[in-house]
Design a binder for these strands. Structure first.
Length: 334
DNA sequence: AAGGTGAGCAACCGCCTAGTA
DNA sequence: GTACTAGGCGGTTGCTCACCT
């Protein structure tokens, strides 16, 4: 397939647009429309390539562009749609009147991404992060326990060093958290809330932000294809998502995922979710397999955690974790 | 005051796809 | 079916500016 060289012609200007160029472009489009972008620059008296003109118009000069800060509502919409559509910025933008895909993309990369990271949510998968779980907030206690172990002055042969003990305790804590979530505890119970608070440092982001509190109608998403629209709608119907806790409990039964599912994230995951929804798989699994044993869960679901920790088990990794939660210098005094 | 650094954002690049001859 | 064009998209770059040392 041949590809037309658009911007490699010699002598065409690149870089920031001047006010004069903007005026020329606006004037021409207002009078004649943009029609053929390739031919436009010549007709408008611009020394630019058509692609550059199109970008300038669609991203900046278009009269219906909304400028200024994003509202909270817009932020929520972006996060919602990104969790379902991934980096399909144009599809997301088509659901936000006056916003361009470029603007949304930039806003995501500079603001929303960081915001989610700070909340312990992976901006790519929209799942809780596994690298620096806030469950580590309990680490000072673990360190204290480790130091206490030193104070006991046990036999050198059986004495664990502080870091090893902390690692073991950390793993134990993670296992407890997961096991707790696997039980059928009402999502609103204090225990569950406490567990979630431990895991994510605060009440669920989704609960707090009401991101999924109200079912939204995405059937009008112009950029999304029919499958995507159906997926969004079905997801809202099948999974009211009224509480992150319930979602965690639901997903924790999924044999293939070791971590709680927020919402379908990547397109691949979205497709999987879509297939599951189509097959009524989620409902079926909950009806037919309501009590998958804790032991099998423990075995199947904890392995990835262990793998994760093994993968990152270098001293620097643990040091970083420890330093975030403990003012003690590293290594710990022995 | 000057230099360094990082964030934010406009613009570019390269690839993909649909349409057409 | 092939070759080509135009438009669109997502990723990346690089400029500007504010803040920090």
């Amino acid at each position: 397939m041949g590809r037309s060289p658009c911007c490699d012609e010699n002598g065409l200007k690149k870089g920031p647009w001047t006010q004069e160029e903007d005026e020329k472009l606006i004037d021409h489009i207002q009078k004649h429309g943009h029609g053929n972008w390739r031919a436009l620059p010549k007709q408008a008296g611009l020394n630019r390539c058509g692609k550059s003109c199109r970008l300038r118009w669609t991203n900046y000069l278009r009269p219906d562009i909304k400028r200024g800060n994003f509202t909270e509502e817009e932020e929520e919409t972006i996060i919602n749609l990104h969790s379902l559509l991934g980096n399909k910025w144009s599809s997301i933008a088509s659901n936000l009147p006056g916003r361009t895909d470029n603007e949304i993309k930039n806003y995501w990369n500079t603001h929303l991404r960081k915001k989610l990271l700070q909340m312990g949510i992976d901006p790519v998968t929209h799942r809780p992060r596994t690298d620096h779980l806030n469950v580590l907030a309990a680490l000072p206690q673990l360190i204290a326990a480790a130091n206490f172990n030193n104070l006991l002055n046990l036999n050198q042969n059986v004495q664990l060093d502080a870091s090893t003990l902390a690692k073991a305790q950390l793993l134990h804590n993670m296992i407890q958290v997961l096991s707790t979530n696997n039980n059928k505890i009402p999502s609103s119970s204090p225990l569950t809330m406490q567990t979630n608070n431990n895991l994510f440092g605060q009440s669920s982001y989704l609960e707090n932000q009401s991101l999924f509190g109200q079912p939204q109608n995405f059937s009008h998403i112009p950029g999304a294809n029919q499958d995507e629209k159906m997926m969004v709608e079905n997801q809202m119907i099948e999974q009211p998502l009224d509480s992150f806790s319930s979602l965690m409990q639901m997903d924790v039964q999924d044999d293939h995922n070791s971590l709680p599912l927020l919402v379908a994230a990547s397109p691949e995951e979205s497709n999987q979710s879509q297939m599951m929804i189509k097959n009524k798989d989620i409902v079926h699994r909950h009806d037919t397999n309501p009590s998958s044993s804790n032991s099998s869960f423990t075995q199947d679901h904890h392995q990835p955690w262990c793998d994760t920790i093994d993968d990152e088990a270098g001293d620097s990794y643990w040091k970083e974790i420890m330093e975030q939660t403990c003012s003690e210098p590293w290594p710990f005094p022995e």
